[in-house]
Amino acid sequence: MPRDPFWRRKTLEQMTVAEWESLCDGCGLCCLVRFEDEETGEVIPTRVHCKLFDPDVCRCSDYANRKAHVPDCIKLTPHNIEALEWMPKSCAYRRLHEGRDLADWHPLISGDPESVHRAGISVRGQTISEAALADLEDALDFAAWDLVIERGDD
């Protein structure tokens, strides 16, 4: 009988750095520019990606040094997931924090890093770079409310 995978045996806090990093499904949703309405606290998602995001592979082009180039980039940790309510409902980090399992399309389940793209979860081919905008506020023209709903199978 095969052992349960690490994400079923360990809490998020017990995972090694490699295990934690492997939870990223490569959807790119957390690399999108968001705005927070100062009056309501509502987070407005957009289809504008961070200047370091590579839209072809749906990964940061300089992950190890991202904070040097994008100081407000948020490092996901087991301790801040709960506070990051804007994280997509499909995100593995959020799903596990909420006591749900990984979705069938997640690469750790499917064994295929392309499964997240085939399932329509990722933003591959659906975004523009913040570098293409004259002013970052212009990203509001690309508001994308559909990105906050659950994407893919539950």
Rank of each mutant, 00 (worst) to 15 (best):
P2Q: 12
D4C: 02
P5Y: 09
W7F: 10
W7Q: 04
W7Y: 12
R9M: 13
K10I: 12
K10W: 06
L12G: 00
E13D: 09
Q14A: 15
M15K: 08
M15Q: 11
T16V: 06
T16R: 03
E19F: 03
E21H: 08
E21I: 11
S22V: 04
L23Y: 00
L23C: 04
D25E: 15
D25K: 00
G26E: 12
C27M: 03
C27T: 02
C27S: 05
L29P: 04
L29R: 02
C31V: 04
C31R: 07
E38A: 15
E39Q: 11
G41H: 13
G41R: 03
V43K: 11
P45G: 06
V48T: 01
H49W: 01
K51T: 10
L52K: 10
P55W: 01
V57A: 11
R59K: 15
A68H: 15
P71G: 08
P71A: 01
C73W: 15
K75V: 13
T77P: 05
P78I: 14
P78T: 10
H79S: 10
H79C: 07
N80C: 07
N80W: 12
I81W: 00
A83S: 11
L84D: 02
E85P: 01
E85K: 12
E85I: 00
E85R: 12
M87R: 08
P88G: 14
S90R: 01
C91P: 07
Y93T: 01
R94H: 07
R95W: 11
L96D: 01
L96Q: 02
L96A: 01
E98C: 00
G99W: 02
G99L: 09
R100S: 04
D101F: 01
L102C: 13
L102K: 12
D104T: 13
D104P: 14
P107R: 05
L108W: 05
S110T: 03
S110P: 04
S110K: 06
G111Q: 08
D112S: 12
P113M: 08
P113W: 09
P113Y: 04
E114L: 10
E114G: 07
H117W: 06
G120R: 12
I121H: 02
S122L: 11
V123E: 02
G125I: 07
Q126S: 03
Q126P: 05
I128W: 10
S129Y: 09
S129A: 06
E130P: 01
E130Y: 07
A131G: 06
A131H: 15
A132R: 14
L133E: 02
L133A: 05
A134K: 15
D135C: 03
L136R: 14
E137N: 15
L140T: 10
F142S: 03
F142K: 08
F142W: 08
A144I: 02
A144G: 01
A144Y: 00
W145E: 15
W145T: 12
D146W: 04
L147F: 14
V148N: 11
I149S: 13
E150C: 06
R151H: 14
D153W: 06
D154C: 12
D154I: 07
